[in-house]
Amino acid sequence: MYIKKILIAIVLIGLVIAAIMAYFVYQTMFVSNTAFNNDTAYVYIPTNATYKDVRAELTPLLKDISKFDRLAERKKYTANIKAGKYVIRKGMNNNDIINSIRSNNIPVKLSFNNQESLARLAGRISTQIEADSLELLAVMSAPEFLKANNFSSNTALGMYIPNSYEFFWNTSAEQFRDRMIKEYQRFWNDDRLAKAKTIGLTPEKVMTLASIVQKETAKVDERKRVAGVYMNRLNIGMPLQADPTVIYAIKRKSGNFDQIIKRVLYKDLELDSPYNTYKYRGLPPGLIAMPDISSIDAVLNYEKHDYLYFVANVQQFGYHKFAKTLSQHNANKQEYVRWINKQGVNR
Rank of each mutant, 00 (worst) to 15 (best):
D39Y: 09
P284E: 04
Y160M: 06
K321P: 02
S152M: 03
N149T: 09
K205D: 12
Y266P: 15
L58F: 05
L234Q: 07
F317G: 12
G237I: 08
I13S: 04
I10R: 04
I6K: 13
W169N: 05
N341Q: 08
T155K: 01
D191S: 15
G123W: 02
K67Y: 09
T50P: 02
I161W: 00
S153M: 13
N94D: 00
R89K: 15
L110H: 05
V31M: 11
K182R: 12
M290V: 07
R124V: 14
N113F: 11
M207N: 04
S111Y: 13
A49F: 07
P143L: 01
K215S: 14
L271N: 01
L157F: 07
T325I: 08
A173V: 02
R74G: 01
K324D: 08
V108Y: 02
T208D: 02
I250M: 11
A156W: 06
A56P: 01
T50F: 06
A22N: 11
A194H: 01
T127N: 10
S32Q: 11
M1N: 13
S254R: 07
Y165A: 11
A323K: 07
I199T: 02
A9G: 12
A18P: 03
E204G: 06
L240R: 12
S126H: 04
K85F: 02
E57Q: 15
K267Y: 11
P274T: 01
I98M: 08
K195S: 08
R223D: 00
V314Y: 06
V311S: 05
F187I: 14
R74T: 14
N33I: 05
N95S: 13
F310Y: 06
T277H: 03
R89A: 12
Y26I: 00
S164L: 09
A331P: 01
P143S: 08
V311I: 09
A156Y: 06
M140N: 02
V220K: 12
N99E: 13
M207S: 05
A210M: 04
R74P: 00
N163G: 10
V206H: 00
Y248Q: 00
I181K: 05
D297Q: 12
I293V: 15
Y42K: 06
L12I: 15
E216C: 02
N149I: 05
A148E: 15
E57D: 10
G282P: 03
D258T: 15
L121T: 03
Y2N: 13
H320D: 09
M1G: 15
F176E: 03
